[in-house]
Structures are given as C-alpha cells and as structure tokens.
Write a protein that binds this DNA or RNA. Structure first.
Lengths: 197, 197
DNA sequence: TGTCTACTAGACAAACCTGTCTGTATGCCG
DNA sequence: CGGCATACAGACAGGTTTGTCTAGTAGACA
C-alpha cells in the first residue's frame, strides 16, 4: 500500500513503527472514538505487527494516553505557528483556531472533551493527561491576560475557558453559520467587561 | 435483591420490565458511558430476560436513543419543578440547576454531551435525539429572553447556550470551587450586556 | 379448567475485543 | 561472515459483544 514515510509525529528520535501507530491512532481515535477502535484495526492500518505494538505500548490505555498527549502537542504547535503578537491579538488568534478547526472536513469537536467523555474515572491516566492539557491552556490564557493588563487574570481565564469549551461544543453540535463572528464578539465582550472594573 | 417497584420512568402506561431496563440503562449509561456498558449487564441488573429486552428494544441503539430521550424528559421535569417565575428569575433558576446537578455525588457532566462524543455520525438517531433536546432548550431560552424584554433573543440564546455548555464542562472537568458564583455572574453579565444596546 | 399474555432462563452463533506467544525475515555493525 | 536488534505475520487464549432462539413458568381472565 502506501509507504509510511511521512510521520506527523516524527521527531527524529523515536521508532518509525511507533510513530506510524501513534499517527494512525490519532486519526482513528479522533474520527471514531477511543472505544470504537480496536488494536487490531490500528495495527492493520499502520502496517505494524502486534508484537511491535505491544513493545511500544504496554496496553491500549497507554496508547490512548499517548494519543491525548499527541493531541496536546499538536494543539500547542498550532498556537506556536501563530507567532509573536500583542497579548490581546494573541488571545483572539487562539480562539480563531477553533473556527479554523471547525472549517476542516473531518472536524468532530474537541478531542479532549470527546476523550474525557469516554473515561468516567477522573483518576485514570487518560483523564490526568487531559487535565494537564487543560491546565496548560488555562495558564497560557491567564498569563496572556496579565500581559494585556487585565486586573483579574485568574477569574477572566476561568471565564475564557468556559467560553472556549462552549464555543467548541457549539462549533461541533450546532454548527452556527456565524461562528467566526460569535467567537470574536464573545471573546471581546469578556475582555471588555473584565477589564473595565 | 431489591423489588423493582419504584420506576423513575413509570407513567402508568408502559411495561414494568421495559421501565426497569430503561431506568437501569439510564443509571449505567450515564455513570460509565454507552459503549462501556453491554446489554448483558443491563438485563442482569434490571432483572429482565434477554428476550424481553429485545421485545421492547429492537437493538441496543434503540435503547440508547430511548436513554437520551429519557434524560431529556428528566431535564424538562427538573425545569418544570422550578414553577412559574418572572422570565429573568426563570433563566437564573435554570442555570442554577447545573450547580445543583454538579453537587450530586454521581455527577459526570452533561449526559447529552457525553453521549454525543460516542456517536461520530451526526445523522445517527442518537445524535438526532440529542439535537432535538438542544433545540428545545435553545428555544426555551429564546422565549424566556423575549419575555424578559431582551432585544435580541435569538443571538442571546446562542450566547447563553455557549455559556451553559461551557459551565457544564467546567463543573465536570475543572470543578471550580466558586461554581455557583461563576454561573450567576456569567449569566447576569450576558443578560446585562445583551439588554443594554 | 383452559387459554392467552408476559415474562424468565439460558443456550447458542458469530463477531469482536485485548494481550501473549512462536517463528521468520531483514538490515546493520563489526 | 557471525551476531544482534528490529519488525513482520499470524496463531492462539480467554473473554466480551450483540442478537436469536428454544423451552418453561406465573398470573389474569373466562
């Protein structure tokens, strides 16, 4: 079939087979859900033997955690690609990424919210990895708000997080026609009302 | 074990066995997720034979759709229990329900968002049932906003929906200490900024 | 008493799941 | 050339999944 040379995950350090597994899992888990995709399917589409799979991932849940961390890495990379801007522009650009993602063909909502829904136990490694990403994003917003001169960066970051999650849900389940405008107005309103106090 | 006389679902018209299945499924699906709970487990805990199950539900997906509709019914009942109040108080009381639910022991977030995460196909009956509930809630908010004299009930209902979903996520994944206050401030701010224009 | 209905119990098929195992092939390094 | 690491192919075990099927039981009603 296709040659497996282009690895999204490639960092020059890890095995190509491992990367092929993680890339395939990232695609399938996001598109169809974690519990809906079996190990057999992943190794078949990745062109990898079962023994190799279990060499790099002790169990399926280990791969799921790696999947979440990979999604986190991809998300951070998307933000890095924005480049340096004034704090306020940065915040707006980050929220614009939601609209960008929603416009893509295979969009299926937020990978972290979707994965969390499949793991009831908050103490599970997968949930913890999700929590780490959420904390990272919250902290990023807080520091950007502080740099923007916001008097209450912590509380405003809470509100921006709520808005961000709500917008991700809306972009997935409701697909509003004016999503880009809704995002911009929502964020600007939060920034204005929290700044002027 | 326990006698199965108290049926949350009971409406005096439907079979007791059917209700026992639906109640058990409602409990298990919400607590552990849809794909994580099998038919065998449901019929065992409901004390119902397999044949009876498949008499009332042609397939598992049929039960899942009924589960979503049952959750919708329970949600509407909770709102009915608030009683008649002025429109603005009504909106605030509806959002307070999120905090009430989050304070309950087995809370695991919004059943509709969790279920939607497990069904990638937007055309699937389960997703459609979820869509119906979301449309119902959106319309309820819109009419309450109109009754409250809001000049832009449609757009404001969009924003309230975004806020509601975000608050549901936060109440589940982040468990903020000041949830009740966060909800109240968020809703009031939306109502103020959307009214004064 | 007989019959009808609703239900229970549980075997069964066929597919799927995760994870372990054996054996083989390929390429690299010395 | 020998030796080693890496990966492939695939059988296998043990358990789970959904859904169908047969056989038997308990209660209501005439």
């Amino acid at each position: 079939m296709a040659d497996h040379t282009a690895d999204i995950t490639d960092n020059g350090l890890e095995s190509s087979a491992r990367n092929r597994v993680l890339d395939t899992a990232t695609k399938l888990f996001y598109a169809e859900g974690v519990h809906a995709v079996g190990v057999d399917r992943i190794i078949a589409e990745a062109g990898v033997a079962k023994a190799t799979f279990y060499k790099y991932f002790q169990a399926k849940d280990t791969l799921v955690r790696a999947y979440v961390q990979n999604q986190s890495r991809l998300g951070r990379a998307a933000i890095d690609r924005i480049g340096k801007r004034p704090a306020r522009d940065m915040i707006l650009a980050i929220f614009d990424l939601v609209a960008d993602a929603a416009a893509q063909p295979g969009y299926r909502g937020c990978p972290f919210l979707n994965a969390a829904a499949e793991y009831p136990d908050p103490g599970h490694p997968v949930r913890q990895a999700i929590g780490e990403h959420r904390r990272w994003k919250h902290d990023l917003l807080r520091s950007l708000l502080a740099a923007d001169g916001n008097p209450n960066p912590e509380t405003t970051a809470d509100i921006l997080t709520v808005a961000g999650d709500g917008l991700l849900i809306a972009s997935h389940l409701d697909k509003p026609a004016n999503l880009r405008q809704l995002i911009r107005e929502t964020v600007l309103k939060i920034l204005e009302t929290s700044a002027g106090r």
